[in-house]
Amino acid sequence: MPHDHHDHSHDELSPSGHPYRQDNDEPLTYWQTMEIAMRELLIEKEITTAAEITARIEEMDRRSPADGAAVIARAWVDPEYKAHLLADGSAACKAMGFEPGVLRLIAVENTADVHNVVVCTLCSCYPRNLLGLPPDWYKTRAYRSRVVKEPRKVLAEFGLDLPDGMTVRVHDSTADMRYVVLPARPEGTEGMSEAELAQLITRDSMIGTGVPKTPT
């Protein structure tokens, strides 16, 4: 295998022009060791099995922003479903076949006057059961500390310039709730099907750092 030799320096580029990725040869951190010890004990004591753990990881990895997009598209075309989503986000997700688990979901609606954006300043709470794993930036100290203080500046860096007359509502997921933004349906989408609409709904538009794509 071309990457198995070690006669190159890590500053060099591969023949195809990409930088070599460093091997993860460094020692385990304290918490990595703790996680392995805990996992091995749980398996040894027959509380769980390695297969069960893998199955749970696969179950989490299967979730993606496409699930959330399906929920939002339904809310755009079905006013009754939209009312359900805004009243009880978890139940509305379940009604579409997306198992909310212990997640308690609140959907917050963008309108002509209000733009919502979601953060977790204390850690990295995210509606994983609906959107899958959070993007790396969502967990950074920069995003978490800045979006509560200068949301408009942060959104502008994402390419979203909001008019002064629009109210920005920042939602800090501090406890048991998780949040998804119900973005406004773009203009010019009147004739589109639910499946076509879902294609316009990006992950960031459901976090609030973006808006849906407009039809081309």
Binding site: V148, K149, E150, R169, V170
Partner: peptide, 19 residues
């Protein structure tokens, strides 16, 4: 209320869950 004079836009809001 949260940021005082340093607020980017005083009328924007911050919602949080508090016990």
């Amino acid at each position: 209320e949260v940021w005082g004079d340093a607020a980017e836009n005083p009328d924007d809001t911050l919602d949080a869950e508090i016990y």
